[in-house]
Structures are given as C-alpha cells and as structure tokens.
Amino acid sequence: MTVAVASGRLLEDSMRTLEAAGYLTEDAWRSTRRLILPCTDPSVRCLIAKPADLLTYVEHGAADLGIAGKDMLLEQGRDVYELVDLGFGGCRGVVAFPEERAARWEMLSPIRVATKYPRVTERYFWSRGRSVEIIEMNGTVELAPQVGLADGILDLVMSGRTLAENRLVEVAEVFRSTARLVVNRMSLRTRAEVVQAVVERMRTAAARRDPSSA
C-alpha cells in the first residue's frame, strides 16, 4: 500500500496528518532526504512527489492513495476518487490585475492571462463567454503583468500579501482549495479493506486536527 504526499506547501500538514493517523513516527520525514519513507505499519509506505506529479502517481496506480490540493484536481481532471477533505492547505484561486487596470479588466479582449492553471483558466473565461489568451508559467506568475507579458493572472492566494506586494488586485474568485485524500479507482476495488481502513483513519485524524473539516 503506497500513500503519495506532495512536497511543497502541503508537505508539513500531510505528514502531521499521517502521524496523527498513526502511520508515521513523529518527524520521521524531517531527518531524511529519502523520497520513500517506511511507515510504522510495515504494509504501508509513503512516497514524496512533486505536487504537479502527485495525481499521476495515483491515477496510474503507482500510489494507492494520495494527498493532493483541490487546485491540482481541478486543473488536471484526473480519474481518481476524491474521498476526504482533509481541511488543511486552505487557499483560493483568484483572478488578479494590476491596480491601474483592475477597474476595466472586463473590457479587455482578448484578455491575456498568465497562470499555472491553464485548463482552469480556459474553463473559467470560456464559461463567461470571454476569449482568453493563456500564458502558461511554472512559477512567479505575479511577475508577468509587471513586465507586459500578460494583462493579469489567475493564481493561488493564501494571505494575499504577494498580490499586494506586486501591486495586484483581486477581481474575481475562481475556486477554493484545501488538501484532499484521493484514491486510485482500482485500489478501491482490488484492495478494498486495506484502503478503506486507511481512508477512515485519515478521515478521523483530519477531523481531530481540524474539527471543521471532514
């Protein structure tokens, strides 16, 4: 049984939840650079993957379960079961424009938007009947409007500080995201009992850590 965990902003809370569910000893993941960690339960192992790759592992069955941001689920549209809202990793996907253009962003056409979420962006603007030119980026999206690469951005915000520091103003919220427990569709069938046990322990652990979730 393999559980995939995303490196980056969800890592710490994911590991804490696995600890709370009794699968990892405390801080076992801090002292090592290994990408596959053994768990306290010898039948379970934990794999650390890039956030953008996480759902690939789960969809292909290289991992039976995974902890992924809802943002990645929305962007990638993978065929996996999304079973539990783990509550942590809260953030929002928003459209933001430079202060001076924010008031008339709805009049730009076609609108050039820089983003790490090309499919979400396309769906969002198309569903509003807007033509959009997507500039796909891998990081520091907020830079794009300042150097004339794009009119605005669609990106994740947590506190909103990065937006403010780059003189960007939120004009629309596109989605809300938290960490989700996802399961490979075949694992749910071929290893039903074991997978269900992990799902329930994770659900309980998440609810204990954050009573508002689950």
């Binding site: 789960v58 969809e59 292909h60 069955g61 290289a62 490979n184 569709r185 075949m186 694992s187 069938r189 071929t190 290893r191």
Partner: peptide, 11 residues
Amino acid sequence: FEGHTASLGFP
C-alpha cells in the same frame, strides 16, 4: 462491470 488485475491502476 469492470475487469482488473492487482497492481494495475486502470481497468
């Protein structure tokens, strides 16, 4: 119905 085998992630 779906047919599968252990350790293949797809039907």
